[in-house]
Write a protein that binds this DNA or RNA. Sequence first.
DNA 1: ACCTGAACACCGTTCAAGT
DNA 2: ACCTGAACACCGTTCAAGT
Lengths: 213, 213
Amino acid sequence: MSTLPRKPKPKNEAEYHHGDLRRALVDAALRSIERDGVSELSLRALARSLRVSPRAPYRHFATKEQLLAAVAVEGYRMSASFTASRLAGSTDPVARLRTAVEAYVLFAVEHPAAFRVMYAPYALVEERAPDLLQARAEGHSEMMRLIGAAQHTGVVRAGDPMLLGLALWSVMHGLAVLLVEGQLSRFERPFEATKLARLVASLLFEGLLRRTE
Amino acid sequence: MSTLPRKPKPKNEAEYHHGDLRRALVDAALRSIERDGVSELSLRALARSLRVSPRAPYRHFATKEQLLAAVAVEGYRMSASFTASRLAGSTDPVARLRTAVEAYVLFAVEHPAAFRVMYAPYALVEERAPDLLQARAEGHSEMMRLIGAAQHTGVVRAGDPMLLGLALWSVMHGLAVLLVEGQLSRFERPFEATKLARLVASLLFEGLLRRTE
DNA sequence: ACCTGAACACCGTTCAAGT
DNA sequence: ACCTGAACACCGTTCAAGT
Protein backbone atom coordinates (compact mmCIF):
# COMPACT_ATOMS: atom_id res chain seq x y z
CA MET A 1 0.00 0.00 0.00
CA SER A 2 1.23 3.46 -0.85
CA THR A 3 1.66 6.11 1.81
CA LEU A 4 0.86 8.87 -0.64
CA PRO A 5 -2.20 10.91 0.28
CA ARG A 6 -5.42 10.18 -1.57
CA LYS A 7 -6.58 12.54 -4.22
CA PRO A 8 -7.92 15.52 -2.26
CA LYS A 9 -11.60 16.46 -2.30
CA PRO A 10 -12.42 19.22 -4.78
CA LYS A 11 -12.34 22.71 -3.31
CA ASN A 12 -15.31 24.11 -5.18
CA GLU A 13 -18.36 22.94 -7.09
CA ALA A 14 -16.88 23.77 -10.45
CA GLU A 15 -14.43 20.87 -10.13
CA TYR A 16 -16.83 18.55 -8.33
CA HIS A 17 -16.99 16.15 -11.21
CA HIS A 18 -13.26 16.02 -11.38
CA GLY A 19 -13.32 14.74 -7.82
CA ASP A 20 -15.95 12.07 -8.33
CA LEU A 21 -17.68 12.17 -11.67
CA ARG A 22 -19.02 8.67 -11.19
CA ARG A 23 -20.86 9.60 -8.02
CA ALA A 24 -22.08 12.86 -9.59
CA LEU A 25 -23.46 10.95 -12.58
CA VAL A 26 -25.38 8.48 -10.44
CA ASP A 27 -26.87 11.28 -8.33
CA ALA A 28 -27.76 13.43 -11.33
CA ALA A 29 -29.28 10.43 -13.12
CA LEU A 30 -31.53 9.64 -10.15
CA ARG A 31 -32.67 13.27 -9.93
CA SER A 32 -33.31 13.37 -13.67
CA ILE A 33 -35.38 10.19 -13.54
CA GLU A 34 -37.36 11.52 -10.58
CA ARG A 35 -38.18 14.57 -12.62
CA ASP A 36 -38.78 13.21 -16.13
CA GLY A 37 -38.85 9.42 -16.02
CA VAL A 38 -36.41 6.78 -17.23
CA SER A 39 -37.22 7.18 -20.90
CA GLU A 40 -36.15 10.83 -20.85
CA LEU A 41 -32.75 10.10 -19.35
CA SER A 42 -29.98 11.32 -21.63
CA LEU A 43 -26.29 10.71 -21.07
CA ARG A 44 -25.43 13.77 -23.11
CA ALA A 45 -27.80 16.01 -21.14
CA LEU A 46 -26.35 14.59 -17.91
CA ALA A 47 -22.83 15.39 -19.10
CA ARG A 48 -23.90 18.91 -20.06
CA SER A 49 -25.45 19.54 -16.66
CA LEU A 50 -22.19 18.44 -15.00
CA ARG A 51 -20.20 20.54 -17.47
CA VAL A 52 -18.17 17.72 -18.94
CA SER A 53 -17.93 16.51 -22.51
CA PRO A 54 -20.29 13.87 -23.97
CA ARG A 55 -17.40 11.45 -23.81
CA ALA A 56 -16.60 11.89 -20.10
CA PRO A 57 -19.27 9.53 -18.67
CA TYR A 58 -17.79 6.70 -20.70
CA ARG A 59 -14.72 6.78 -18.45
CA HIS A 60 -16.97 5.39 -15.73
CA PHE A 61 -19.74 3.51 -17.53
CA ALA A 62 -19.39 1.48 -20.70
CA THR A 63 -23.00 2.16 -21.69
CA LYS A 64 -26.07 4.04 -20.53
CA GLU A 65 -27.42 0.73 -19.21
CA GLN A 66 -24.39 0.36 -16.96
CA LEU A 67 -25.12 3.76 -15.47
CA LEU A 68 -28.72 2.63 -14.85
CA ALA A 69 -27.38 -0.50 -13.16
CA ALA A 70 -25.33 1.72 -10.84
CA VAL A 71 -28.44 3.79 -10.10
CA ALA A 72 -30.27 0.55 -9.27
CA VAL A 73 -27.51 -0.51 -6.86
CA GLU A 74 -27.78 2.86 -5.14
CA GLY A 75 -31.55 2.25 -4.92
CA TYR A 76 -31.02 -1.09 -3.18
CA ARG A 77 -28.73 0.61 -0.65
CA MET A 78 -31.36 3.26 0.03
CA SER A 79 -34.07 0.62 0.37
CA ALA A 80 -32.02 -1.49 2.76
CA SER A 81 -31.30 1.42 5.10
CA PHE A 82 -34.93 2.59 4.83
CA THR A 83 -36.13 -0.81 6.03
CA ALA A 84 -33.39 -1.19 8.65
CA SER A 85 -34.31 2.10 10.30
CA ARG A 86 -37.95 0.97 10.58
CA LEU A 87 -36.99 -2.40 12.01
CA ALA A 88 -34.77 -0.86 14.69
CA GLY A 89 -36.26 -1.29 18.14
CA SER A 90 -38.79 -3.94 17.11
CA THR A 91 -38.12 -7.40 18.53
CA ASP A 92 -41.22 -9.52 17.91
CA PRO A 93 -40.43 -11.60 14.79
CA VAL A 94 -43.94 -11.46 13.34
CA ALA A 95 -44.15 -7.70 13.87
CA ARG A 96 -40.74 -7.34 12.23
CA LEU A 97 -41.93 -9.30 9.22
CA ARG A 98 -45.01 -7.10 8.88
CA THR A 99 -42.89 -3.98 9.26
CA ALA A 100 -40.51 -5.12 6.54
CA VAL A 101 -43.43 -5.69 4.14
CA GLU A 102 -44.83 -2.24 4.86
CA ALA A 103 -41.39 -0.64 4.50
CA TYR A 104 -40.94 -2.27 1.09
CA VAL A 105 -44.17 -0.75 -0.19
CA LEU A 106 -43.57 2.60 1.48
CA PHE A 107 -40.08 2.88 0.04
CA ALA A 108 -41.46 2.32 -3.44
CA VAL A 109 -44.06 5.04 -2.97
CA GLU A 110 -41.59 7.53 -1.51
CA HIS A 111 -38.83 6.78 -4.04
CA PRO A 112 -40.65 5.73 -7.21
CA ALA A 113 -37.78 6.63 -9.52
CA ALA A 114 -35.29 4.47 -7.63
CA PHE A 115 -37.85 1.67 -7.33
CA ARG A 116 -38.55 1.63 -11.06
CA VAL A 117 -34.89 1.44 -11.96
CA MET A 118 -34.25 -1.30 -9.38
CA TYR A 119 -36.82 -3.57 -10.97
CA ALA A 120 -36.51 -2.58 -14.59
CA PRO A 121 -35.58 -5.34 -17.01
CA TYR A 122 -31.81 -5.37 -17.35
CA ALA A 123 -31.45 -8.99 -18.32
CA LEU A 124 -28.48 -8.37 -20.53
CA VAL A 125 -26.66 -6.08 -18.20
CA GLU A 126 -27.06 -8.19 -15.11
CA GLU A 127 -24.48 -10.68 -16.19
CA ARG A 128 -21.96 -7.86 -16.22
CA ALA A 129 -23.34 -6.09 -13.16
CA PRO A 130 -22.30 -8.26 -10.20
CA ASP A 131 -23.02 -5.46 -7.68
CA LEU A 132 -26.61 -5.39 -8.86
CA LEU A 133 -26.98 -9.15 -8.43
CA GLN A 134 -25.36 -8.93 -5.00
CA ALA A 135 -27.57 -6.05 -3.86
CA ARG A 136 -30.65 -8.02 -4.84
CA ALA A 137 -29.38 -11.18 -3.16
CA GLU A 138 -28.82 -9.31 0.10
CA GLY A 139 -32.37 -7.97 0.19
CA HIS A 140 -33.60 -11.45 -0.52
CA SER A 141 -31.54 -13.04 2.26
CA GLU A 142 -32.72 -10.47 4.76
CA MET A 143 -36.34 -11.27 3.94
CA MET A 144 -35.74 -15.00 4.27
CA ARG A 145 -34.16 -14.46 7.70
CA LEU A 146 -37.23 -12.50 8.83
CA ILE A 147 -39.50 -15.29 7.58
CA GLY A 148 -37.49 -17.99 9.28
CA ALA A 149 -37.61 -16.10 12.59
CA ALA A 150 -41.37 -15.63 12.29
CA GLN A 151 -41.89 -19.32 11.57
CA HIS A 152 -39.77 -20.16 14.60
CA THR A 153 -42.29 -18.51 16.91
CA GLY A 154 -44.93 -20.95 15.71
CA VAL A 155 -47.33 -18.12 14.83
CA VAL A 156 -46.52 -18.29 11.15
CA ARG A 157 -47.26 -21.60 9.49
CA ALA A 158 -44.44 -24.07 8.90
CA GLY A 159 -43.57 -25.16 5.40
CA ASP A 160 -41.04 -24.28 2.73
CA PRO A 161 -39.73 -20.80 3.65
CA MET A 162 -38.98 -20.23 -0.02
CA LEU A 163 -42.63 -20.59 -0.85
CA LEU A 164 -43.75 -18.28 1.94
CA GLY A 165 -41.10 -15.84 0.78
CA LEU A 166 -42.42 -16.01 -2.74
CA ALA A 167 -45.97 -15.29 -1.62
CA LEU A 168 -44.83 -12.45 0.60
CA TRP A 169 -42.60 -10.97 -2.06
CA SER A 170 -45.35 -11.28 -4.66
CA VAL A 171 -47.91 -9.44 -2.59
CA MET A 172 -45.63 -6.62 -1.47
CA HIS A 173 -44.02 -6.21 -4.86
CA GLY A 174 -47.38 -6.30 -6.59
CA LEU A 175 -48.87 -3.66 -4.33
CA ALA A 176 -45.76 -1.51 -4.67
CA VAL A 177 -45.79 -1.71 -8.47
CA LEU A 178 -49.51 -0.98 -8.71
CA LEU A 179 -49.15 2.03 -6.41
CA VAL A 180 -46.06 3.36 -8.16
CA GLU A 181 -47.58 3.00 -11.61
CA GLY A 182 -50.77 4.65 -10.45
CA GLN A 183 -53.05 1.73 -11.33
CA LEU A 184 -55.07 1.87 -8.15
CA SER A 185 -57.13 4.97 -8.80
CA ARG A 186 -60.30 2.90 -8.87
CA PHE A 187 -59.63 1.28 -5.48
CA GLU A 188 -59.02 3.77 -2.73
CA ARG A 189 -59.12 7.45 -3.28
CA PRO A 190 -57.30 9.08 -1.71
CA PHE A 191 -55.28 6.01 -0.73
CA GLU A 192 -52.69 5.95 1.96
CA ALA A 193 -49.87 3.59 1.10
CA THR A 194 -49.03 2.50 4.65
CA LYS A 195 -52.65 1.70 5.41
CA LEU A 196 -53.07 -0.28 2.20
CA ALA A 197 -49.84 -2.18 2.80
CA ARG A 198 -51.02 -3.09 6.29
CA LEU A 199 -54.43 -4.22 5.05
CA VAL A 200 -53.09 -6.29 2.19
CA ALA A 201 -50.40 -7.85 4.35
CA SER A 202 -53.05 -8.77 6.92
CA LEU A 203 -55.18 -10.43 4.27
CA LEU A 204 -52.18 -12.48 3.20
CA PHE A 205 -51.39 -13.45 6.79
CA GLU A 206 -54.95 -14.38 7.62
CA GLY A 207 -56.10 -15.70 4.28
CA LEU A 208 -59.09 -15.10 2.06
CA LEU A 209 -61.01 -18.22 3.00
CA ARG A 210 -63.55 -18.07 5.77
CA ARG A 211 -62.24 -19.40 9.08
CA THR A 212 -64.00 -22.58 10.14
CA GLU A 213 -63.84 -22.02 13.88
CA MET B 1 -75.34 4.89 -44.10
CA SER B 2 -73.74 4.60 -47.49
CA THR B 3 -74.35 1.60 -49.67
CA LEU B 4 -70.92 1.90 -51.23
CA PRO B 5 -68.67 -1.11 -50.62
CA ARG B 6 -66.00 -0.77 -47.97
CA LYS B 7 -62.43 -0.29 -49.01
CA PRO B 8 -61.40 -3.71 -50.32
CA LYS B 9 -58.78 -5.80 -48.58
CA PRO B 10 -55.34 -5.50 -50.15
CA LYS B 11 -54.59 -8.12 -52.77
CA ASN B 12 -50.96 -8.67 -51.92
CA GLU B 13 -48.53 -8.10 -49.10
CA ALA B 14 -46.83 -5.20 -50.82
CA GLU B 15 -49.88 -3.01 -50.32
CA TYR B 16 -50.87 -4.44 -46.96
CA HIS B 17 -50.06 -1.23 -45.18
CA HIS B 18 -52.19 0.73 -47.60
CA GLY B 19 -55.10 -1.39 -46.47
CA ASP B 20 -54.55 -1.04 -42.76
CA LEU B 21 -51.31 0.61 -41.76
CA ARG B 22 -52.55 1.19 -38.25
CA ARG B 23 -53.15 -2.51 -37.66
CA ALA B 24 -49.84 -3.39 -39.31
CA LEU B 25 -47.98 -0.95 -37.06
CA VAL B 26 -49.49 -2.37 -33.87
CA ASP B 27 -48.68 -5.93 -34.94
CA ALA B 28 -45.15 -5.08 -36.04
CA ALA B 29 -44.52 -3.11 -32.83
CA LEU B 30 -45.58 -6.06 -30.69
CA ARG B 31 -43.32 -8.42 -32.63
CA SER B 32 -40.43 -5.98 -32.39
CA ILE B 33 -40.87 -5.63 -28.63
CA GLU B 34 -41.05 -9.41 -28.25
CA ARG B 35 -37.75 -9.66 -30.06
CA ASP B 36 -35.75 -6.70 -28.72
CA GLY B 37 -37.60 -5.09 -25.82
CA VAL B 38 -39.50 -1.82 -25.50
CA SER B 39 -36.39 0.35 -25.35
CA GLU B 40 -35.29 -0.80 -28.79
CA LEU B 41 -38.58 0.03 -30.47
CA SER B 42 -38.07 2.54 -33.27
CA LEU B 43 -40.86 4.17 -35.24
CA ARG B 44 -38.52 4.73 -38.14
CA ALA B 45 -37.39 1.10 -38.20
CA LEU B 46 -41.03 0.02 -38.01
CA ALA B 47 -41.88 2.24 -40.97
CA ARG B 48 -38.93 0.85 -42.91
CA SER B 49 -39.98 -2.74 -42.28
CA LEU B 50 -43.48 -1.92 -43.57
CA ARG B 51 -41.97 -0.06 -46.53
CA VAL B 52 -43.53 3.29 -45.80
CA SER B 53 -41.89 6.64 -45.15
CA PRO B 54 -40.87 7.80 -41.65
CA ARG B 55 -43.81 10.18 -41.74
CA ALA B 56 -46.49 7.58 -42.50
CA PRO B 57 -47.04 6.29 -38.94
CA TYR B 58 -47.92 9.80 -37.84
CA ARG B 59 -51.13 9.55 -39.86
CA HIS B 60 -52.31 7.04 -37.27
CA PHE B 61 -50.45 7.92 -34.07
CA ALA B 62 -49.54 11.40 -32.88
CA THR B 63 -46.49 10.07 -31.03
CA LYS B 64 -44.56 6.90 -30.36
CA GLU B 65 -46.26 6.74 -26.96
CA GLN B 66 -49.67 6.68 -28.63
CA LEU B 67 -48.60 3.66 -30.64
CA LEU B 68 -47.48 1.98 -27.41
CA ALA B 69 -50.88 2.78 -25.89
CA ALA B 70 -52.52 1.02 -28.85
CA VAL B 71 -50.23 -1.97 -28.33
CA ALA B 72 -51.30 -2.02 -24.67
CA VAL B 73 -54.98 -2.02 -25.64
CA GLU B 74 -54.33 -4.96 -27.93
CA GLY B 75 -52.61 -6.68 -25.00
CA TYR B 76 -55.67 -6.21 -22.80
CA ARG B 77 -57.83 -7.77 -25.51
CA MET B 78 -55.50 -10.75 -25.75
CA SER B 79 -55.43 -11.14 -21.97
CA ALA B 80 -59.22 -10.99 -21.69
CA SER B 81 -59.75 -13.71 -24.28
CA PHE B 82 -56.92 -15.78 -22.76
CA THR B 83 -58.69 -15.75 -19.39
CA ALA B 84 -62.16 -16.21 -20.84
CA SER B 85 -61.14 -19.37 -22.68
CA ARG B 86 -59.77 -20.83 -19.43
CA LEU B 87 -62.90 -19.95 -17.48
CA ALA B 88 -65.18 -21.56 -20.03
CA GLY B 89 -66.81 -24.69 -18.65
CA SER B 90 -65.97 -23.95 -15.02
CA THR B 91 -68.97 -23.15 -12.84
CA ASP B 92 -67.79 -23.23 -9.21
CA PRO B 93 -67.21 -19.56 -8.24
CA VAL B 94 -64.15 -20.23 -6.07
CA ALA B 95 -62.57 -22.43 -8.74
CA ARG B 96 -63.28 -19.72 -11.30
CA LEU B 97 -61.55 -17.14 -9.11
CA ARG B 98 -58.48 -19.35 -8.76
CA THR B 99 -58.46 -20.03 -12.48
CA ALA B 100 -58.58 -16.31 -13.25
CA VAL B 101 -55.58 -15.67 -10.98
CA GLU B 102 -53.60 -18.44 -12.64
CA ALA B 103 -54.57 -17.22 -16.09
CA TYR B 104 -53.36 -13.71 -15.25
CA VAL B 105 -49.91 -14.99 -14.31
CA LEU B 106 -49.75 -17.45 -17.17
CA PHE B 107 -50.67 -14.81 -19.72
CA ALA B 108 -47.83 -12.60 -18.48
CA VAL B 109 -45.34 -15.44 -18.79
CA GLU B 110 -46.54 -16.46 -22.26
CA HIS B 111 -46.81 -12.88 -23.58
CA PRO B 112 -44.17 -10.93 -21.66
CA ALA B 113 -43.86 -8.21 -24.28
CA ALA B 114 -47.59 -7.44 -24.25
CA PHE B 115 -47.67 -7.65 -20.45
CA ARG B 116 -44.81 -5.17 -20.06
CA VAL B 117 -46.42 -2.63 -22.36
CA MET B 118 -49.80 -3.04 -20.66
CA TYR B 119 -48.39 -2.05 -17.28
CA ALA B 120 -45.70 0.37 -18.34
CA PRO B 121 -45.97 3.87 -16.97
CA TYR B 122 -47.93 5.98 -19.44
CA ALA B 123 -49.23 8.53 -16.98
CA LEU B 124 -49.16 11.33 -19.51
CA VAL B 125 -50.67 9.39 -22.33
CA GLU B 126 -53.52 7.86 -20.38
CA GLU B 127 -55.49 11.05 -20.28
CA ARG B 128 -55.53 10.99 -24.05
CA ALA B 129 -55.93 7.24 -24.39
CA PRO B 130 -59.52 6.50 -23.35
CA ASP B 131 -59.43 3.00 -24.92
CA LEU B 132 -56.53 2.13 -22.62
CA LEU B 133 -58.43 3.29 -19.55
CA GLN B 134 -61.53 1.42 -20.68
CA ALA B 135 -59.63 -1.81 -21.37
CA ARG B 136 -58.16 -1.67 -17.87
CA ALA B 137 -61.52 -0.90 -16.31
CA GLU B 138 -63.09 -3.93 -18.00
CA GLY B 139 -60.47 -6.31 -16.66
CA HIS B 140 -60.97 -4.82 -13.26
CA SER B 141 -64.76 -5.20 -13.35
CA GLU B 142 -64.49 -8.82 -14.44
CA MET B 143 -62.23 -9.58 -11.48
CA MET B 144 -64.61 -7.86 -9.07
CA ARG B 145 -67.52 -9.92 -10.43
CA LEU B 146 -65.55 -13.11 -9.84
CA ILE B 147 -64.75 -12.04 -6.28
CA GLY B 148 -68.37 -11.12 -5.54
CA ALA B 149 -69.55 -14.51 -6.80
CA ALA B 150 -66.95 -16.32 -4.67
CA GLN B 151 -67.99 -14.38 -1.57
CA HIS B 152 -71.60 -15.25 -2.28
CA THR B 153 -70.88 -18.95 -1.80
CA GLY B 154 -69.74 -18.23 1.76
CA VAL B 155 -66.42 -20.01 1.19
CA VAL B 156 -64.54 -16.77 0.70
CA ARG B 157 -64.62 -14.36 3.64
CA ALA B 158 -67.03 -11.47 3.62
CA GLY B 159 -65.76 -7.91 3.76
CA ASP B 160 -65.04 -5.10 1.37
CA PRO B 161 -64.72 -6.73 -2.08
CA MET B 162 -62.45 -3.87 -3.11
CA LEU B 163 -59.96 -4.83 -0.45
CA LEU B 164 -60.05 -8.51 -1.37
CA GLY B 165 -59.62 -7.44 -4.97
CA LEU B 166 -56.62 -5.35 -4.07
CA ALA B 167 -54.97 -8.24 -2.23
CA LEU B 168 -55.71 -10.63 -5.07
CA TRP B 169 -54.51 -8.23 -7.72
CA SER B 170 -51.37 -7.46 -5.73
CA VAL B 171 -50.37 -11.07 -5.37
CA MET B 172 -51.06 -12.09 -8.95
CA HIS B 173 -49.56 -8.95 -10.42
CA GLY B 174 -46.51 -9.22 -8.18
CA LEU B 175 -45.88 -12.83 -9.13
CA ALA B 176 -46.41 -12.04 -12.80
CA VAL B 177 -43.97 -9.11 -12.73
CA LEU B 178 -41.32 -11.05 -10.83
CA LEU B 179 -41.60 -13.96 -13.27
CA VAL B 180 -41.57 -11.75 -16.36
CA GLU B 181 -38.59 -9.71 -15.15
CA GLY B 182 -36.73 -12.88 -14.26
CA GLN B 183 -36.25 -12.01 -10.59
CA LEU B 184 -37.14 -15.45 -9.30
CA SER B 185 -34.02 -17.34 -10.27
CA ARG B 186 -33.18 -17.88 -6.61
CA PHE B 187 -36.56 -19.38 -5.75
CA GLU B 188 -37.54 -22.29 -7.92
CA ARG B 189 -35.31 -23.57 -10.62
CA PRO B 190 -36.63 -24.59 -13.02
CA PHE B 191 -39.91 -22.98 -12.04
CA GLU B 192 -43.20 -23.71 -13.66
CA ALA B 193 -45.40 -20.65 -13.77
CA THR B 194 -48.74 -22.41 -13.43
CA LYS B 195 -47.54 -24.38 -10.43
CA LEU B 196 -46.15 -21.28 -8.73
CA ALA B 197 -49.31 -19.32 -9.42
CA ARG B 198 -51.38 -22.10 -7.86
CA LEU B 199 -49.15 -22.32 -4.80
CA VAL B 200 -49.03 -18.60 -4.20
CA ALA B 201 -52.76 -18.21 -4.75
CA SER B 202 -53.38 -21.01 -2.26
CA LEU B 203 -51.19 -19.30 0.32
CA LEU B 204 -53.21 -16.13 -0.13
CA PHE B 205 -56.50 -18.01 0.17
CA GLU B 206 -55.44 -19.95 3.24
CA GLY B 207 -53.22 -17.38 4.88
CA LEU B 208 -49.73 -17.44 6.33
CA LEU B 209 -50.77 -17.68 9.97
CA ARG B 210 -51.06 -21.07 11.58
CA ARG B 211 -54.59 -22.36 11.79
CA THR B 212 -55.81 -22.62 15.38
CA GLU B 213 -58.05 -25.63 14.94
C1' DA C 1 -5.72 8.61 -15.67
C1' DC C 2 -9.12 11.59 -17.17
C1' DC C 3 -11.10 14.57 -20.29
C1' DT C 4 -11.97 17.02 -25.02
C1' DG C 5 -13.92 17.80 -29.67
C1' DA C 6 -15.32 16.18 -33.87
C1' DA C 7 -17.69 12.66 -36.12
C1' DC C 8 -21.01 8.52 -37.25
C1' DA C 9 -25.15 6.47 -37.60
C1' DC C 10 -29.04 6.70 -35.78
C1' DC C 11 -33.62 8.80 -33.42
C1' DG C 12 -38.66 11.23 -32.96
C1' DT C 13 -40.93 14.72 -35.03
C1' DT C 14 -42.12 18.62 -38.31
C1' DC C 15 -42.58 21.14 -42.82
C1' DA C 16 -43.99 21.67 -47.32
C1' DA C 17 -45.61 19.16 -51.00
C1' DG C 18 -47.40 15.59 -53.91
C1' DT C 19 -51.59 12.43 -55.62
C1' DA D 1 -57.26 11.01 -47.23
C1' DC D 2 -52.88 9.15 -47.19
C1' DC D 3 -48.21 9.19 -48.17
C1' DT D 4 -43.39 11.19 -49.56
C1' DG D 5 -38.80 13.38 -48.95
C1' DA D 6 -36.00 16.57 -46.93
C1' DA D 7 -34.89 18.73 -42.79
C1' DC D 8 -34.24 19.84 -37.53
C1' DA D 9 -32.61 19.03 -33.22
C1' DC D 10 -31.51 15.69 -30.82
C1' DC D 11 -29.41 10.75 -29.27
C1' DG D 12 -25.66 6.86 -27.77
C1' DT D 13 -21.31 5.73 -28.91
C1' DT D 14 -16.57 5.85 -31.14
C1' DC D 15 -12.09 7.86 -32.85
C1' DA D 16 -8.02 10.25 -32.39
C1' DA D 17 -5.89 13.38 -29.57
C1' DG D 18 -4.67 16.33 -25.78
C1' DT D 19 -2.68 17.00 -20.66
